[in-house]
Deep mutational scan, measured.
Amino acid sequence: RRVTVRKADAGGLGISIKGGRENKMPILISKIFKGLAADQTEALFVGDAILSVNGEDLSSATHDEAVQALKKTGKEVVLEVKYMK
């Protein structure tokens, strides 16, 4: 599913991630910080795999590559996510 997140002037997306190619895992949302941008969408969940950020494929990204992709986003971020059981 596709989720658009609008960041506030102060603060980032409000998520922590884990996983990555070096761990043989997808990039997973490991924490959502209450009240910040990702939480306010009410459409992102701990355990979601982030498949892409603004069209940039993260399916084979390392953890560091995913962190950089998320950091360089502007005010509006489009995440392609899939819930992983």
Rank of each mutant, 00 (worst) to 15 (best):
Asp64Val: 09
Tyr83Asp: 15
Ser52Tyr: 06
Lys31Leu: 01
Thr62Val: 01
Gln40Thr: 09
Pro26Asn: 07
Leu13Met: 09
Gly74Asp: 11
Lys71Gly: 11
Lys75Ser: 13
Ser59Thr: 15
Lys72Leu: 09
Val5Pro: 02
Thr4Phe: 12
Val5Met: 11
Ala10Met: 12
Ser16Asn: 11
Gly55Arg: 04
Leu28Tyr: 15
Ile15Ser: 00
Ile17Leu: 09
Ile50Glu: 06
Lys18Ile: 14
Ile29Met: 04
Gly11Lys: 12
His63Gln: 13
Ala66Asp: 00
Ser52Phe: 05
Val5Cys: 10
Glu42Asp: 14
Val53Lys: 03
His63Thr: 12
Gly11Asp: 13
Val3Glu: 00
Met84Pro: 11
Asn23Gly: 06
Thr4Pro: 04
Ile32Met: 05
Gly74Leu: 04
Ser60Leu: 10
Gly47Met: 05
Ser52Leu: 02
Val81Leu: 07
Lys31Tyr: 08
Arg21Ile: 12
Asp9Gln: 12
Ala10Glu: 13
Val81Thr: 05
Pro26Lys: 00
Phe33Glu: 15
Ser60Gly: 13
Val46Gln: 07
Asp64Met: 10
Asp9Arg: 11
Val77Lys: 05
Lys72Gly: 11
Leu36Ala: 15
Leu58Ile: 14
Gly74Lys: 10
Glu56Trp: 11
Asn23Ala: 12
Thr4Arg: 07
Val81Asn: 06
Ala8Tyr: 08
Gly12Val: 10
His63Arg: 13
Lys7Gly: 11
Arg2Val: 10
Asp39Met: 01
Ser30Lys: 09
Gln68Arg: 13
Glu56Pro: 02
Leu79Gly: 04
Gly14Arg: 03
Gln40Asp: 09
Ser60His: 15
Val81Cys: 06
Val67His: 07
Asn54His: 00
Lys7Ile: 14
Gly12Arg: 09
Gly11Ser: 13
Met25Asp: 06
Ala69Gln: 07
Ala66Cys: 05
Ala8Ser: 14
Gly20Leu: 00
Gly12Leu: 12
Gly20His: 06
Ile50Trp: 02
Ala38Leu: 04
Asp64Pro: 07
Gly47Asn: 13
Gly55Val: 01
Thr62Ser: 11
Lys72Ile: 10
Asp39Leu: 03
Val3Leu: 03
Leu58Lys: 02
Gly74Gln: 08
Ala61Gly: 03
Met84Ala: 13
Thr73Cys: 14
Lys24Asp: 13
Arg6Asn: 14
Glu42Leu: 05
Ile29Asp: 01
Gly20Pro: 04
Leu70Ser: 02
Ala38Lys: 04
Val5Gln: 02
Thr73Asp: 08
Gly11Tyr: 10
Thr62Leu: 03
Arg6Asp: 08
Lys85Arg: 14
Met84Arg: 08
Val81Phe: 00
Met84Glu: 13
Asp64Leu: 09
Leu13Glu: 05
His63Glu: 09
Lys71Ala: 14
Ile50Tyr: 02
Gly19Trp: 00
Leu13Gln: 01
Arg1Val: 00
Val81Ser: 05
Phe33Ile: 12
Leu36Lys: 13
Thr73Ile: 09
Lys72Ala: 14
Lys85Leu: 15
Ser52Asp: 02
Gln68Ala: 12
Lys85Val: 08
Leu36Gly: 15
Gly14Val: 01
Ala69Cys: 14
Leu13Cys: 04
Val3Thr: 01
Tyr83Lys: 15
Lys82Pro: 05
Lys31Phe: 02
Glu65Arg: 06
Arg2His: 07
Lys34Trp: 01
Lys24Val: 01
Lys71Ser: 14
Asp48His: 00
Arg21Cys: 08
Ser30Met: 04
Ser52Cys: 05
Leu13Thr: 01
Glu22Leu: 06
Gly14Cys: 03
Gly12Met: 11
Arg2Ile: 13
Ala38Met: 08
Lys24Gln: 13
Val67Cys: 11
Gly55Asn: 07
Thr4Tyr: 13
Gln68Trp: 08
Lys34Arg: 10
Val67Lys: 10
Ile15Leu: 11
Gly55Thr: 03
Ala38Arg: 05
Gly74His: 10
Ala8Asn: 11
Ile32Cys: 07
Ile27Trp: 00
Gly14Trp: 05
Gln40His: 07
Val67Asn: 08
Ile32Pro: 04
Ile15Glu: 02
Ala38Tyr: 10
Ala37Ile: 05
Met84Asp: 13
Thr62Ala: 05
Phe45Trp: 09
Ala61Glu: 00
Met25Gly: 08
Ile15Trp: 01
Tyr83Asn: 13
Gly12Trp: 07
Gln68Pro: 03
Lys75Ala: 12
Lys34Gln: 10
Ala10Pro: 13
Ala61Arg: 04
Val53Cys: 10
Ser59Phe: 03
Lys72Met: 11
Val46Asp: 03
Ser59Tyr: 05
Gly11Arg: 11
Ile15Asn: 00
Lys31Ala: 09
Ile32Ala: 02
Lys82Arg: 13
Ile29Phe: 00
Ile17Cys: 02
Lys34Glu: 10
Val46Ile: 10
Lys82Phe: 06
Val53Phe: 02
Ala8Met: 15
Lys75Trp: 05
Ala38Asn: 00
Phe33Tyr: 13
Lys18Phe: 10
Glu80Asp: 09
Leu36Cys: 15
Lys18Thr: 15
Glu42Met: 11
Leu51Val: 09
Glu56Ser: 09
Ile27Pro: 03
Val46Asn: 06
Asp64Phe: 11
Val5Gly: 01
Val67Ala: 10
Lys24Gly: 14
Lys72Pro: 06
Phe45Val: 09
Ala10Thr: 15
Lys85Cys: 15
Ser30His: 11
Phe33Trp: 15
Thr62Phe: 00
Gly35Cys: 06
Val67Trp: 10
Arg2Asp: 02
Ala61Ile: 00
Val46Trp: 02
Ile29Arg: 04
Ala10Ser: 14
Phe33Lys: 15
Ala8Cys: 07
Gly47Gln: 05
Ser16Pro: 04
Leu79Ala: 05
Gly11Val: 10
Pro26Ala: 01
Lys18Gly: 10
Ala43Cys: 11
Gln68Thr: 12
Gly20Asp: 04
Ile15Gln: 03
Gly35Asp: 09
Ala61Asp: 00
Lys24Ala: 10
His63Asp: 08
Lys75Gln: 13
Arg2Trp: 11
Lys24Phe: 08
Ala38His: 02
Gly11Trp: 07
Glu65Ser: 05
Phe45His: 12
Met25Ala: 10
Asn23His: 15
Gly19Glu: 03
Ser30Arg: 06
Asp9Met: 13
Glu22Ile: 03
Gly14Thr: 02
Leu70Lys: 01
His63Ala: 10
Val77Gly: 06
Arg21Val: 11
Arg6Cys: 14
Ile29Gly: 03
Phe33Met: 12
Asp39Ala: 10
Ala66Asn: 07
Lys18Gln: 13
Asn23Leu: 12
Asn54Trp: 01
Ser16Ala: 15
Ile32Phe: 01
Ile32Val: 10
Ala10Phe: 14
Asn54Ala: 01
Ile17Ser: 03
Val46Cys: 11
Ser16Ile: 12
Val67Phe: 06
Lys85Gln: 14
Val81Met: 00
Asp39Gln: 06
Gln40Glu: 09
Ser16Tyr: 08
Ala37Phe: 03
Lys24Arg: 12
Gly14Asp: 08
Glu22Val: 03
Gln68Asp: 11
